[in-house]
Design a protein around this nucleic acid. Sequence first.
DNA 1: CTTATATTGTGAAAAATTTCACAATAAAGC
DNA 2: GCTTTATTGTGAAATTTTTCACAATATAAG
Lengths: 209, 209
Amino acid sequence: MIANKNCIIRLSRYKNAIYRLRDLGFVKVFSENLADATGVTASQVRKDFSMFGITGNRKGGYEISSLIDRLGEILGKNRVEKVVIVGSGHLASALMQYKGFEKEGIKIEAAFDIDPEKFDKNAAIPVLPADELKGFAAANNIKVGILAVPEIAAQRAADAMFDAGIKGIMNFAPIRLKSPNDCTINNVNLEIELENLIYFVNIIGKKEI
Amino acid sequence: MIANKNCIIRLSRYKNAIYRLRDLGFVKVFSENLADATGVTASQVRKDFSMFGITGNRKGGYEISSLIDRLGEILGKNRVEKVVIVGSGHLASALMQYKGFEKEGIKIEAAFDIDPEKFDKNAAIPVLPADELKGFAAANNIKVGILAVPEIAAQRAADAMFDAGIKGIMNFAPIRLKSPNDCTINNVNLEIELENLIYFVNIIGKKEI
DNA sequence: CTTATATTGTGAAAAATTTCACAATAAAGC
DNA sequence: GCTTTATTGTGAAATTTTTCACAATATAAG
């Protein structure tokens, strides 16, 4: 599909908003509602839907249940997606405890570390030796991993992940990873986000980032 | 300044890359180097610099030390920026332990919670009762806060932050906060980022997000 | 059944962002 | 000090993204 990243992110946001509206008992939703809930224009919502052939009902808006199905299909979330975490520091633990992923059908299957002190085969999410990653990923068909190790160890850990057949990394280390051509990297850089926020606060004025 | 969000984020990335180059002993850097390090084009680097009147040396590239100063000025990081965290769950703890912020001159001064079990006035980063936020923010001139509470509590907590004079919120709750006109919200939504990554992995092909 | 009304769906226009391309020029070499 | 070479700085072009505007049409009302 020829949709850009921002469009995909917006689809996720629409989906989240739609869940909330559904929980409030809504059955239909209009492009205007989704616009209000997510902070974009109504045309943007319709255009985004149009890009993926999502159609509503001229006059009747969009039916929530079928919209959720359709968005789930597009975003690939109609089955549980299994992921691993590499690293088991504070951030990794926080992510393991985080309930938000499950709600989206994302299951963290295991964490991997090099520090034997951290190993715990019997935890709800087991913490395993890093050298077991490849076997584990193969056995469980893992394609996506979260990289939460210190900057200094990040590239090596990423290389091990690629070697284990992982095709997508959510990278929390503040460096640009060198990666094979068929792999996708999503960089999450909290310092940069916060620095960015501070910038906009200092130059004053409302802004949504 | 009429620079957009992406431009500011890129400036932060350039700065990070420049720090690394400096640590390797570099004294000068070319737009081409920064392009390689951050994954953009060299023209983009020059254009971004040009927007902020950052000038180099035709032929000699950019001098690293003055570039760092200038970027620091622009990004407002030549003094320590004090921030607070609202919430003290797993994510908040991970952020409190995180060393990356300090490196950028960002100091987390305190966390706030409503659960008395969490209070700890004597910790390195004290955890204080939520109702002390307003006084604390006023006394310490806090303008930026990190919001890391469950979705259900997020809007109320945000309102308390606005009331305390906070003008910028880094929001980890997966909802769109209603906010006053002079406040900036930076939404960090980890589920959406991960879902997004999964999307791109499933449709195959290299992509940097 | 006809009319009025509300909302979608989308091509076209506008705006924003990125890339191109090249003149300007500083440094190095001769 | 003249020439060559490498790199910046930036207007203009190209591309991408967003918004506009309105025809199409489903529903509701009369």
